[in-house]
Nucleic acid binder design. Structure first.
Lengths: 160, 160
DNA sequence: GTAGTATGAATGAATG
DNA sequence: CATTCATTCATACTAC
């Protein structure tokens, strides 16, 4: 995929020119607009950041071993030819594992960010998502919805 | 069910903290991750709204005319007979949708796909992608499934 | 065995 | 850039 190729190359926020070129290139495969490309990069980057963030927040300061396999491959640094490419991006690119669509705000702990650019996250794949398990044996009993809601509902009982 | 309880309590988009707590609680019953909870709420709310919207769309002819723009926003054309209907007449033949309630907001995006008029033919932002493009590895099976249920829906609608 | 549905998962699109 | 919404896909489960 062209987009992923470019992303891997370091392109994260292509400019208008870039977008236009990519769009033109992709137009061969079908109808596409510049905004599609734009959104694609936006989402991709955002997702990566989410993963990163979640990773950091998750493994806050558990036990980040320092052994790891060289995550900081200092050899794949190939300038993206464009704007700034966060080095974090490259990191995550290497440690691509799973993702967590957490809505952020989870990093309200005391985790350290130094690992962001120092060493790759030492994430031992100890957890293997078993996929869908029957956490919610919902069948026909749909007793949801009710009450009023809006955005950022805070009236919830946190069951804390 | 914990999740539905919370949902009924008003929790729609739990924060990371909420998710963490719920996840911790549910961990007792089995393996679960934060993203599961996250997705659960996302989907629940989305389907709830979908049902609501569907019903609204169906009854909208009663006394709409007021602010139909908010209702006909999108995703309304798929309305049918709920269940045993021919779902072959409402698939990808939707091309006659040109109305854009956004009007001015449409052009005022915030980026440069249309600002690149200096390069070549700038695509008029009046067209929207019909479906998912080949930007990503799309699957193959086209299982058009509709969500139709006759649950007890009450008031909600975040309407964002 | 097919059809329909419910639901988790993923991503594009949009907004703040 | 962060968050949310809408749509779609894949799969498990049920009913016919």
């Amino acid at each position: 995929m062209i987009l992923e190729e470019m992303y891997r190359s370091g392109v994260r926020t292509p400019n208008a020119a870039q977008i236009q070129q990519i769009t033109a290139h992709l137009s061969y495969y079908g109808k596409i607009e510049g905004k599609n490309v734009f959104y694609w990069f936006q989402n991709h980057k955002a997702r990566d950041r989410q993963k990163l963030r979640r990773r950091l927040g998750r493994h806050q300061q558990l036990h980040l071993q320092l052994h790891q396999k060289d995550i900081i491959k200092k050899g794949f640094f190939q300038e993206a030819t464009t704007q700034g490419m966060d080095l974090v991006g490259k990191l995550e690119t290497v440690v691509t594992e799973e993702e967590e669509p957490m809505t952020s705000a989870m990093m309200g702990f005391e985790h350290e960010w130094m690992a962001t650019k120092s060493i790759g996250s030492a994430v031992p794949p100890c957890c293997r998502p078993l996929k869908t398990l029957d956490l919610f044996p919902v069948k026909s009993t749909s007793l949801k919805d009710e009450c009023s809601s809006s955005k950022s509902s805070s009236c919830s009982t946190s069951t804390n």
